[in-house]
Nucleic acid binder design. Sequence first.
DNA 1: TGATTATTTCAATATTAGTTGAAATAATGA
DNA 2: TCATTATTTCAACTAATATTGAAATAATCA
Lengths: 119, 119
Amino acid sequence: MNETQAVTALSALAHRHRLQIFRLLVVAGPTGVPAGEIAEAIGINPTALTFHLKELANADLATATREGRYVRYALHVDGMRRVIRYLTEDCCQGRKELCGLPTMRGRETCKPRAARERA
Amino acid sequence: MNETQAVTALSALAHRHRLQIFRLLVVAGPTGVPAGEIAEAIGINPTALTFHLKELANADLATATREGRYVRYALHVDGMRRVIRYLTEDCCQGRKELCGLPTMRGRETCKPRAARERA
DNA sequence: TGATTATTTCAATATTAGTTGAAATAATGA
DNA sequence: TCATTATTTCAACTAATATTGAAATAATCA
């Protein structure tokens, strides 16, 4: 993940409705949710919904799959993980006790990148 | 953390220079970095720097402490952790294998909130 | 095929966020 | 106190984002 991609992802999340949509997709998991159901849950009109879903998809945080006349949107898990990693990378120079950050798949998020890459 | 706070934090991060500043503070850890040093590292003018630092501080992602004529900015670790938690809460309905999310201080980020709170 | 439902596109408008330079405030040291 | 360095404030300007309604496209079903 590079800086531009990270800014795109964070911008996508930095909006009330898109954040609501994102969290809905996070909870829903890989099965996803049809657009119409999202619209109803969030309470916005179809034009706005399409606009916001596109922002999320463009930011690699969601995927779209057509199913007949519905389009089902799902969380793009890797996209989500990449942003978080980008934010927390190299934190506190690896002194985990200073930031209490989580571990990511067994590797310390908080370990300096160089050390992680040697491992 | 509520929705508004999360949007504020994500908006603060959703800018090239602020993201650079944030990551600088993440690496620096609790010691922080004087404003002037940040300006030099990022390469922006003092007015812009103040503007962006204020956004980060206002979003609870950074703190400012005056030290003589310098002002030292540091990462606000709890703020950072709260946004990440807000984003990943209740993911995949607790089926961690679906999202490969990190654990947060021993508690599964990916476990449903209700289950976490019972624990 | 024609009616219906779901989603997307387009263009106009409205809103919010970012940049700039000049001037103000804060602290230090000669 | 006066000169110097550090940071912040202010106001004008510029640029990027979001919202809206009407119309188009996609797919299903009678």
